[in-house]
């Protein structure tokens, strides 16, 4: 998922008997698996938490254009360039769906973008890591989109209708992204010694940040309980991470690459891999703005926005002239 550490109300989950009649009816609908729609009554906390989560997710798609955009002009064949362009275009489209889903909750896209540009809103920590060689385009598709899919598949069941429906559509495209990423990795891992080195390097660098995409360990995740009760979140951070590791390690082995975690081992009894936690201190530093690319990413988005102001204003002015002429 592209949203980590979404702050919810911060309060504990209320028991049904502590709720007002409205809250109780709302919770019962959620418990019955019904979807909540924009015009339905909802608690303020539900609305706020959803706005934060959906907008973070949207911002991640938008900022996520940058690390892959970094290689579009250096893609090694015309076909790879086309595929990568199409993929990044999908991400921009996902940004649009998600902002639209957030707007159904009574916020405006312009305000959400202002929050992003001013550094008040978060986006996934993964996009604050650099893409340093061509195999990163494989690893991003395979690991980053792969991790995103684990969460997003679960989020198709989320309680808020517009978000859930956006996820259904996004998941279809994300599986194509993950497959194209793995296809690049296959070519690289099975290629020349230099290509194999690029593949291993990309995997080594992106493995840990990919594990961080699921958010902090459940034990430290103060905001999860209420979100789970509201089905804004439908899987815990640790569950998602475990699922991702279980599906990815056999893929690494198939590629003939080294698993970056030397202590990762399949536990025969549970059928799950045991693995080393990523460095959570690094994770929190990145969230605070100290990742390798935080400053560059925000600067790029701000430049695009500021330098494009005349364009947006020009279009608006023309539309107004047309409107006046029509009246």
């Amino acid at each position: 998922m592209y949203a980590q550490e979404v702050k919810s109300t911060g309060k504990g989950v209320k028991a049904l008997e502590e709720m007002s009649a409205e809250e109780r009816a709302f919770q019962e609908r959620i418990d019955a698996g019904e979807k909540i729609e924009p015009k339905d009554w909802m608690p303020d906390g539900y609305r706020k938490t959803l706005v934060r989560q959906i907008s973070q997710h949207g911002h991640s798609e938008v900022v996520g254009q940058l690390p892959e955009g970094n290689w579009i002009t250096r893609a090694p064949t015309l076909e790879r360039k086309s595929i990568l362009l199409a993929k990044v275009q999908d991400e921009a489209g996902h940004g649009l769906y998600l902002y639209s889903a957030a707007e159904t909750l009574g916020v405006s896209r312009a305000d959400l973008i202002d929050d992003l540009l001013a550094g008040r809103a978060k986006y996934s920590s993964i996009f604050n890591y650099p893409t340093l060689n061509w195999a990163d385009m494989g690893a991003v598709g395979w690991l980053v989109d792969g991790a995103a899919i684990v969460n997003q598949v679960a989020l198709q069941r989320t309680s808020y209708g517009p978000y859930s429906r956006a996820m259904v559509r996004i998941c279809k495209e994300e599986s194509f992204h993950a497959r194209q990423g793995y296809d690049i990795m296959m070519k690289m891992a099975g290629g020349t010694a230099a290509q194999k080195q690029m593949a291993q390097d990309a995997l080594d660098r992106l493995w840990w940040p990919a594990l961080m995409m699921f958010g902090p360990p459940d034990a430290d995740s103060v905001h999860s309980a209420q979100s789970m009760a509201w089905k804004i979140k439908v899987m815990t951070n640790d569950e998602g991470r475990q699922k991702f590791v279980d599906q990815t390690i056999p893929q690494i082995e198939y590629l003939g690459l080294e698993v970056p975690d030397q202590d990762a081992v399949l536990d025969a009894e549970s059928g799950h891999y045991r693995f080393t936690d990523p460095d959570w201190r690094e994770f929190f530093e990145v969230l605070k703005g100290n990742g390798p690319c935080n400053v560059d990413r925000l600067r790029a988005r701000n430049m695009a926005h500021d330098e494009g102001a005349w364009f947006r204003e020009g279009l608006m002015a023309h539309a107004k002239k047309q409107q006046i002429a029509a009246e």
Partner: peptide
């Protein structure tokens, strides 16, 4: 055109430019 990817004035233009670049490369 592909050099603009992620840097255009508005999200809709990012999408439109990617379309044009894709057509051109095709």
């Amino acid at each position: 055109v592909s050099e603009w990817c992620g840097h255009s004035p508005v999200l809709e233009e990012d999408i439109a430019l990617a379309n044009i670049a894709l057509d051109m490369i095709g």
